[in-house]
Amino acid sequence: MLTLLHNPRCSKSRQTLALLEERHLDMRVRRYLDEPLDEAELRALLTRLEADSAALVRTQEPEWKQLGADPHDAEQVIQAIAAHPRILQRPIADDGQRAIIGRPTDAVLSLLDGTTA
């Protein structure tokens, strides 16, 4: 089942949710600000993203800048996001095997092979 890490205040996240809903997918929407990911979930997510840890964090957010952490240090990124979920990049679609950041929105479509209704 596809999980969308979603922030309803983010236009890209809303666009991605609409795109996936149009396809009538069996999907879980996880509002990560209400239900933050713990460090173990973030480690697993980073592995499924197959990207540098810098891709997982919103480096322009004030919380990130105040930390002065290294975006290429996976443990620093994981600890920072666990403490400040708002700095998690969004939206992220995750099928349990692979995860894709929805920037651009249609990037998440690459996960849909075999998951469409």
Rank of each mutant, 00 (worst) to 15 (best):
T115R: 15
R14N: 08
L17Y: 02
L111K: 03
K65I: 03
A51D: 06
L2Q: 13
E39R: 15
E39D: 14
G96T: 13
A54D: 08
A93M: 05
P104Q: 09
D106I: 11
P36S: 12
P85R: 05
T3E: 05
E35S: 12
D73F: 02
M1N: 15
L109Q: 05
A80W: 00
L88Q: 02
L17T: 03
E75K: 11
P85H: 06
P8G: 11
G68L: 01
T3V: 14
Q66M: 11
L4V: 04
A74C: 09
R9T: 14
E22Q: 15
L49W: 01
D106L: 10
Q66V: 04
V57A: 01
L17V: 09
G96Y: 11
Q97F: 11
S13N: 08
L109I: 09
A99Y: 02
Y32H: 13
H72E: 02
L46T: 03
L20Q: 01
E21I: 08
R98D: 09
A107I: 05
S110E: 15
I100T: 05
D113F: 05
E41R: 09
D70I: 03
E50N: 15
I100L: 12
A82D: 04
A40G: 10
K12Y: 10
C10K: 08
L33D: 02
E35T: 10
R23Q: 14
K12T: 15
R14E: 05
P71E: 01
L25S: 12
T59Q: 12
R98A: 12
S13E: 02
D70A: 07
T16M: 10
L4F: 02
D73N: 14
D73R: 06
R98M: 09
R28M: 13
V108D: 01
L2I: 15
L37Y: 04
L37Q: 03
E39Q: 14
K65T: 07
L37V: 09
A44Y: 03
A51R: 15
H6I: 06
L19D: 04
R98W: 10
T3L: 14
I101Y: 08
D73S: 12
A107S: 14
I81W: 00
